[in-house]
């Protein structure tokens, strides 16, 4: 049981780490603000979700498990919202100085 849980954790957390890598690569390589924002919010939130998933088998107590899920939901929620707000700021910046 514990071995299975461990393997699951390794895989999920490894995958999560990969998505963080992907997000950062996107941040570094993508050409403009909006695409960078896209890479960041999508990949990192997924990465965090996978990390949470990987940690779930190890928490003691239902309450702590719930907290983990709530954390992820909170980050998703704020990511979606702040992402929108940032995108608007980016759009306005674009309007002010359009690319040459």
């Amino acid at each position: 049981m514990s071995a299975v849980a461990d393997v699951f954790s390794y895989i999920a957390i490894g995958a999560g780490a990969f998505f963080f890598l992907a997000g950062t690569v996107g941040l570094l390589r993508f050409p403009d603000t909006l695409t960078r924002l896209h890479a960041l919010t999508k990949a990192d939130n997924l990465g965090l979700g996978l990390v949470v998933l990987g940690l779930l088998p190890h928490v003691d107590g239902v309450l702590n498990g719930m907290k983990l899920v709530v954390i992820w939901l909170l980050v998703l929620l704020s990511g979606a919202d702040a992402g929108q707000l940032i995108a608007r700021a980016a759009r306005r910046a674009l309007r002010r100085h359009p690319p040459a």
Binding site: F20, D44, V75, G79, I86, A90, A93
Partner: peptide, 17 residues
Amino acid sequence: DADRLMAGQLLGSGGIA
């Protein structure tokens, strides 16, 4: 500044992870 605003998001997910 829009790029800089992403710092909060970046740490919000990465820092928490």
